[in-house]
Design a protein around this nucleic acid. Sequence first.
DNA 1: TTAGTTGCAAACAATTTGCACGTTG
DNA 2: CAACGTGCAAATTGTTTGCAACTAA
Lengths: 144, 144
Amino acid sequence: MGNSIHVLKDALKDSGRRVTHKRGLILDLLRETPGHPDAETLLIKAKKRDPRISLATIYRTLALLKKTGFVEEHRLGETHAHYEAVGETPHFHFTCRKCGRVIEFESGLLDRLKLELKRKHRVDLREIHIHASGFCAHCREKGD
Amino acid sequence: MGNSIHVLKDALKDSGRRVTHKRGLILDLLRETPGHPDAETLLIKAKKRDPRISLATIYRTLALLKKTGFVEEHRLGETHAHYEAVGETPHFHFTCRKCGRVIEFESGLLDRLKLELKRKHRVDLREIHIHASGFCAHCREKGD
DNA sequence: TTAGTTGCAAACAATTTGCACGTTG
DNA sequence: CAACGTGCAAATTGTTTGCAACTAA
């Protein structure tokens, strides 16, 4: 578990940006936290280790981590954003409309979809998000 | 182009909800408008035909049309939502990070993806959104 | 030392809501 | 005429920003 400061150092060097312990903390939290925390949740967790951290810093750091490719921002059917540390395997999300649970799923079709998009429209594809919703196996049994 | 009131009547009957001019107007606009208007854009267009319509009604009607399956809400990389009348062919969106253009694309892989998701996780799938971003063919040529 | 970072509070943007009045069935 | 719909303005929610104090390099 980690101290992510050295990782950030690598990514931020030469950019004039600094590696602070708050930034490292936020990246650590994102990597440790299962699921898809929102900014508020990250603030609460962060305050336990550094009580003087503010929501503004959470947002500013999330923007930085997005730009440098460490985190992804997801819209999971709610009005606010959720965040997730970028891992090895790309995956998508399914939100249950009843219990709110988020299921992550992967598929080999993703690569083919990307390829198709690049070929057909000759775009330089940088990001792709898939979000599905409906009723999870558990909730569908008991009717809506 | 049409008067959507009879269509709404069908969908809203027995639900205690009423079929009003304003609701019909907003659905008409969504069907006539190419692209993916946001609430503000719909308000401007709506005011040309009914100057007394308000933004609150736009939002309330969009919520109703979403619930009844007439429109889809998309998050196209901006902070506010965009809306689109549900048509025959499901498609996805690609937003160019430079010029902001939204490209719609379809793929036969979509059905396979849905099938895979239903099989693997036994969910009752109601909706799936795919949003990609990067640089369109036009913008990638001239560097970032 | 000095430019980048942070907390705080205020500003913003998008959307929602309470309430009195208007309209539909 | 009873219940639902609407305009208006105020309230909420989520996020961003200006500025003075702070801190990493």
